[in-house]
Amino acid sequence: AEDTGVRVELAEEDDCTKSSIALRLWVEDQKKLKGKYKDSGAIEFAFDLDTEVPETVAQEMVDSGFFLEIDVKIVGKSIRDRVSLIKWRRQRSASARN
């Protein structure tokens, strides 16, 4: 996947059963973001794989003041890429069990 400069990873072991998972996001390469990333921390949050949309969470982060509106797409894409990978891994392990 394209390097967005934003890292998103699992904040807990994926047991492949819960739809809600904990994710952790942080800026790895500030040059990739157009706006100035104001926080030096990692943001941990719960995400429901079945019902939630990555871009909505990205907008909530903007609304909370973590990022500027101009970076909402790059944040949303970063979350979407990770969520896609998690879903793919789950499907793969489910088909391996069958």
């Binding site: 942080w26 790895e28 921390g41 990692a42 943001i43 941990e44 949050f45 719960a46």
Partner: peptide, 27 residues
């Protein structure tokens, strides 16, 4: 510092904590 800051927004809880230096890319 291990201090974590909790931000509630639109019903979601964001927990902000420092990123270890080792996880940051060289600028």
């Amino acid at each position: 510092s291990s201090a974590a800051q909790v931000v509630h927004s639109a019903g979601r809880r964001f927990i902000v904590s420092p990123v270890p230096e080792s996880r940051l890319r060289e600028q």
